[in-house]
Simulated assay, not measured.
Amino acid sequence: MNPWRLRLLSLLDTLGTVRAVAQAAHLSPSSVSQQLAVLETETGTQLLERTGRRVRLTSAGLILARRARAILDHMDGVEEELRGFGEEPAGLVRLGAFQSAIHTLAVPAVTRLAREHPHLDVELLELEPHESVPALRVGEADLVITTTDFGELPLGPDLDLVPLATDPIVLVVPPEHPAAGRGTVDLAACADEPWAFDMPQSYMANLALRLCRRAGFEPRVACRFSNYMLALQHVEAGLSIALLPKLAVDRRYRVATRELTTPVTRTITAAIRRAAPPRAAVRAVLDALRHPPDLPPTGHE
């Protein structure tokens, strides 16, 4: 069986349609259909059944699709062993991480791994929490840093979760703002402020909107940025205030941070697929994330 075609079958199980698989694999729908037909020939088994213009997996197709990820992981492990590096972690690990975890957790880990394991290559992918778990499940990432709070993520028994850190959600204001001098802030007092928000339907945009509504008001959104640095610049200029994870508040910006009267904290978690024992390379990356150097100070109190 061709590993690439197995991956297409696994994607079909996860994404549901040939068109979605084609978009994920950067192929045409007809090419995906042709490759899946070849896979049926390779296995000598009917894997797909057609109902009108749609395609769905047969019982045999479901079994193979759901074992394909474990098969592909095992093949990666065998390839690593055959490279002859013994117990030395080697090969490529694709690490997905959300924006604020990249510079505080992922980059320090990758930097240390480059010194300690020269045959290990880490490809760093920026994936927000709502993107990372689906990418992990379909094999586009081997390991992700995500969050497990606020009911945002479709977690299940197919994943192993390793807590890495906790991170409070803070109010970020210009240093001259009246709220800058207080110990904690009740969001209800900020009902009339202009707000900097993340992009619609993103993890932080959804969380900030829920917190504002819980405080009894609909936020007046002055800007939306997918980059925390742009949001911090906007706040620093006195044009808005924001709710951000504390790890996202870079100390280079002249802003003040205040924790909320009703604390909100997210748990930063590493996730890997449970289908097969992790490769030595994946274990090395996970160990580096679990034992980070001291985090740099963030924000201005």
Results as ranks from 00 to 15, higher is better:
residue 229 M to P: 01
residue 5 R to W: 11
residue 289 L to D: 07
residue 223 C to P: 09
residue 71 I to S: 06
residue 215 A to T: 02
residue 239 L to T: 05
residue 60 A to T: 06
residue 284 A to K: 05
residue 190 C to F: 11
residue 176 E to C: 01
residue 32 V to C: 01
residue 262 T to H: 14
residue 91 G to H: 07
residue 88 E to F: 00
residue 277 P to K: 04
residue 281 A to R: 14
residue 111 T to A: 12
residue 232 L to N: 15
residue 130 H to G: 06
residue 235 V to E: 11
residue 224 R to V: 14
residue 174 P to K: 14
residue 18 V to Q: 10
residue 140 E to S: 09
residue 144 V to S: 09
residue 114 A to V: 03
residue 76 D to S: 09
residue 163 P to R: 05
residue 284 A to F: 05
residue 154 P to A: 13
residue 90 A to S: 12
residue 133 V to T: 12
residue 62 L to T: 15
residue 36 L to P: 00
residue 186 D to P: 01
residue 138 V to R: 07
residue 287 D to I: 04
residue 193 E to T: 01
residue 29 P to A: 02
residue 222 A to C: 08
residue 44 G to N: 10
residue 14 T to Q: 08
residue 178 P to V: 01
residue 171 L to W: 02
residue 174 P to E: 11
residue 67 R to K: 03
residue 29 P to T: 00
residue 91 G to T: 05
residue 151 G to R: 13
residue 203 Y to G: 07
residue 164 L to E: 13
residue 21 V to S: 06
residue 26 H to P: 00
residue 103 H to K: 04
residue 20 A to V: 00
residue 112 R to D: 04
residue 112 R to N: 08
residue 259 E to A: 15
residue 164 L to R: 10
residue 54 R to P: 01
residue 95 L to T: 08
residue 70 A to C: 02
residue 164 L to N: 10
residue 86 G to F: 09
residue 142 D to V: 02
residue 272 I to V: 11
residue 261 T to C: 11
residue 39 L to N: 10
residue 98 F to E: 10
residue 113 L to G: 09
residue 3 P to H: 04
residue 41 T to W: 14
residue 142 D to M: 15
residue 179 A to E: 11
residue 178 P to I: 02
residue 34 Q to I: 01
residue 163 P to Y: 11
residue 221 V to M: 12
residue 12 L to K: 13
residue 107 V to R: 15
residue 195 W to Y: 13
residue 193 E to R: 12
residue 202 S to R: 03
residue 2 N to P: 14
residue 137 R to S: 02
residue 173 V to N: 13
residue 286 L to E: 01
residue 292 P to V: 12
residue 269 T to D: 07
residue 189 A to V: 05
residue 48 L to I: 06
residue 272 I to C: 13
residue 196 A to Y: 02
residue 132 S to Q: 03
residue 237 A to C: 15
residue 12 L to Q: 13
residue 112 R to C: 03
residue 141 A to P: 15
residue 61 G to I: 14
residue 156 G to L: 03
residue 247 L to M: 14
residue 123 E to W: 11
residue 87 E to P: 07
residue 86 G to N: 06
residue 150 F to D: 08
residue 92 L to S: 10
residue 151 G to L: 10
residue 131 E to R: 01
residue 107 V to D: 12
residue 18 V to P: 04
residue 182 R to Q: 12
residue 186 D to I: 00
residue 253 Y to Q: 01
residue 242 A to R: 01
residue 139 G to A: 07
residue 218 E to S: 06
residue 113 L to D: 04
residue 203 Y to S: 14
residue 202 S to D: 02
residue 109 A to G: 15
residue 31 S to Q: 06
residue 46 Q to R: 08
residue 186 D to A: 09
residue 3 P to N: 09
residue 120 L to G: 12
residue 90 A to F: 03
residue 170 V to C: 11
residue 146 T to P: 11
residue 193 E to K: 03
residue 224 R to D: 12
residue 136 L to H: 03
residue 120 L to T: 15
residue 155 L to Y: 11
residue 191 A to S: 06
residue 14 T to L: 09
residue 242 A to E: 01
residue 55 V to W: 07
residue 85 F to E: 05
residue 180 A to D: 00
residue 292 P to S: 08
residue 142 D to H: 06
residue 153 L to P: 14
